[in-house]
Amino acid sequence: MANPPKADDTASKAILRLLRDCFEIYRETQRYCDITNGVRNILQDLSLHILDIVENSIDAGAKKIEIIIKENVKQNMLVLKIKDNGKGMDKNTIAKALDPFYTTKKTRRIGLGLSMLAQATKEADGTFQIKSQKGKGTTVIAKFVYDHIDRKPIGNMTETIIALIAGKGMDVDFIYEHHKNSHGFVFDTRTIKKEIKDIPINNGEVLNILRENIIKELKRIGARP
């Protein structure tokens, strides 16, 4: 009887390691698929997408983040633009950024944010674009067909802006511009900081007044507050 083939020790160990890694990734993927399905249902509106993208910007070290929303009913178009001055991405990273299995985070292996917004534009016959330059910053532009049945609603922009200021307003400046047809307004935390001088912008009373003012302005331009 022929000798049974003797396993090459190093090779089999390497294969085992690989299998174990694969399994771990598979398990993690399954868990995230569950979450992603949930996410697609739960990140129902664009204001939550915006909060998410802006959190990315903050993670990228941005100190100034512009959030621009243009609702143009006549041209049947909704444009979202988020522009930051964070560390930016090189060409390779931009290409990878839309892959849901790409993340720079050390805490998990899968990123979701950008790919989900891209998906949301696709569902509403829109377009999605990332412009970035290493060391300069990143701009994300999402365009939607305004009256498309699958276009997610804008949602509660007021709470998104207030959540951002409450969490990071002391270190980061936010400029929120919202236009509806020919009306619009600009909300700039730099101006507000100048006005309130030594009061921190994340002070509860300040946030309340900011909240009321944003709601008032959104109503004035005919957008949903």
């Binding site: 307004f185 600009v186 006005e195 001088k197 009061i199 002070n203 009373e205 007044i209």
Partner: peptide, 17 residues
């Protein structure tokens, strides 16, 4: 286009301080 001006802020400054 209108710039959002926060009028009440001055009033609450003292209180908030």
């Amino acid at each position: 286009m209108k710039k959002l001006k926060i009028g009440d802020l001055e009033k609450i400054r003292e209180k908030a301080r």
